[in-house]
Computed example of a mutant assay.
Amino acid sequence: MQLLGIVFSSVSMVVVAQPSVSFFYSDLPPYEYTDQQGRAAGIAIDRVQRLFAAAGWRVFYHFDSVPRGERALEQLVDFTTVVAPTAQQRQQYVISELPLYQIELGVIRTEQTPPVTQWADLLQQPYLVLRDTRFAYLQDEAYASPLMTLRYEVANSADALRLLNSGRFAYFLCYVSSHQAPPAPWLKVDVLGRYPVHLVISRQHAQAQQYMQTIDALLRRTDFH
């Protein structure tokens, strides 16, 4: 009887884990915020998700206040964004060559309130602002000092809109989008300026240069602008 030798060859499958990075964001609607399902959302989050997916990275989002998020960037978080980076921030972070997107800064007001067409219009009375928004890139402007003294800080956008609707304050200085409807039908948006938003990573990060080289190469592609 002839023996039939049957050889089973085993095929080993190697599963390569998708690299993961983390991104810090705060409460700055409509650009970045946490939606009702507890997920990161907004114009900026959409851009980050698309860019990191093109890099082949899985992104985990870390929500916190700006001061705590900046501290986390030194140890726990890989990326965040900075509006119009200052000289000090350029020393502190590795910054993308090109901006990820352009952000609009302006005021939200009621229909009955006179529009704001220039910064001087905000220097007449206190205005609302989110506690975490510092507008560091405005520090060298002539109006910066009086502008900062008139700010009335609130914890979140909901509190700002409530105070705005009560008539106690005329304006809410915040990041806005001229491409989206105001938060309520009786509100108006006046845009005061547009500024570049760059991705940043701490210079202390072990892979700072490697990560940013990947980001810069992707941002140079025309389909990201």
Rank of each mutant, 00 (worst) to 15 (best):
G38A: 14
V14S: 14
G5H: 13
S65P: 06
V16N: 14
L147N: 09
Q37T: 14
A41R: 10
R134E: 12
P99F: 02
S10G: 01
Y101L: 00
S96H: 06
R131D: 03
F52E: 00
T149C: 12
D64E: 12
R47G: 09
A142N: 06
R71H: 15
F24E: 15
A87T: 12
S96E: 02
I43A: 03
L73Y: 05
L130E: 00
L122N: 05
L76G: 11
P85V: 01
Q125A: 15
R90P: 00
I45W: 00
R134Y: 14
W119H: 05
Q49M: 14
M13C: 09
F8Y: 11
A120S: 15
R50Q: 05
Y101A: 01
Q102I: 05
Y25K: 00
Q88F: 01
F60S: 15
P19M: 02
V83L: 04
I45T: 08
V129L: 07
P146W: 13
S145A: 14
Q91D: 02
Y25C: 00
V82P: 00
A144C: 10
Q112H: 15
V15W: 02
L100I: 01
A54H: 01
Y101R: 04
L105V: 14
Q89T: 04
V14G: 07
S12V: 14
A87R: 13
D27P: 14
L51H: 07
F63I: 02
D46L: 08
E74Q: 12
Q49E: 15
V11E: 05
R47T: 00
P67G: 06
P85D: 04
V7T: 11
D132Y: 06
F8E: 09
V16S: 08
D140F: 10
